[in-house]
Design a protein around this nucleic acid. Sequence first.
DNA 1: CGGCGCCTACCGGATACCGGGTATGCGGAA
DNA 2: TTCCGCATACCCGGTATCCGGTAGGCGCCG
Lengths: 213, 213
Amino acid sequence: MTVRIVIVDDHALLREVLRKMLDREPDFEVVGAAGSGREALELVEAQHPDLVVMDLMLGDGNGVDTTREIVRRRRGTKVIALSAYSQRRLVLAVLEAGAAGFVRKADSYSELREAVRAVQAGQKYLCAGVTGSVVDAHVGAPDSAFAKLTTRQRLVLSEIARGRSSGEIARELHLSPHTVETHRRNLMRKLGLHSVADLTRYAIREGLTTAEE
Amino acid sequence: MTVRIVIVDDHALLREVLRKMLDREPDFEVVGAAGSGREALELVEAQHPDLVVMDLMLGDGNGVDTTREIVRRRRGTKVIALSAYSQRRLVLAVLEAGAAGFVRKADSYSELREAVRAVQAGQKYLCAGVTGSVVDAHVGAPDSAFAKLTTRQRLVLSEIARGRSSGEIARELHLSPHTVETHRRNLMRKLGLHSVADLTRYAIREGLTTAEE
DNA sequence: CGGCGCCTACCGGATACCGGGTATGCGGAA
DNA sequence: TTCCGCATACCCGGTATCCGGTAGGCGCCG
């Protein structure tokens, strides 16, 4: 029985060459390829693949949310994350979103192939480079500081990182500057950060804002 | 006559699948693949390829310097940059380093194939998405603000973006805090920026620092 | 019902930042 | 020799930040 596969990656080059390689396996059949999360969802609805190979850095958003949505809509479709990045947060996020496997773009083609087969057989699959992150999470490593911030704190943080002063943020949110200062103080205390530069870099790391203009 | 090709990319997956695809072209022969700039240099010395397909974001440094070195050592070896990123600065940098072509990972496999053939025929090749950047540079678009900063200004900027105060920077550099403040003021004026958050994001964009801890 | 966390708002003091200016010495180029 | 840019250093005033604290209202959970 062949495995019906969908490939999702924003790089056309990789989609093409990967599709051709996977199609050559006797037990694989690539039924489609998508370059964005939205396209991926449409393709999965149309083709009902057994498995999706999902890049996580998609142009229209991260593949984590797309993974969650695919898994929610179709219990029979499994997702393997395929990513150039393997930070702990990202790995955990996509696994928690329901992915059944994680392979890095730094890994070999044969590892991806093995992952496809393992996941199709009902196993979970992690490449060697990310297993540690998952174990750490399981044994109780501290939660992401990000999850610790309240809604207002995250909002204030993202505004600070964009270059706004407490006074400007207060005006935008129709609050007192004192209130913004308290949120600021509290979030800095939680995160152990001490300057606007620290906050800005943290917000960029956590995806609350970007370095772009 | 076949074109002898070396592939340089830090992602093993892409190296493998791309190698197999290029090898199937009747006029191409992939004589090696490398995952780092250092490996690439060694491979080029050993194999004397006609052409190198060079990723720009390599683990041991950017491919721009490797490109420059390859072109310097072997006039007969041409380089095509293959990158996930196509910011104007990067494109110009690698062309100025001596690359004869630029293709994005977002482009199709056929475009890469066409680029290989064109460059081998002695032409320069730019994918459609980056031609504009090159033209802009040629007709005198404003220099990068980055190039406008003096050595001291860049250093002060990177320290600010890492979270240090003017006082701390002064101590590190054995300068007066007044001096640091003047550098700061001058560079902010040049760049049209008005806050530490602005400076931090700018420094990250320009590669003076990263968002990592 | 009580406790807790979040959101809101306030106070004070010290430090840092922002933006304006000035000045001198040095080295390189015209 | 002169001019210019860079690096260095200083001054001033106003605003923002950082860090400490306090307090009340609201909603949720046990």
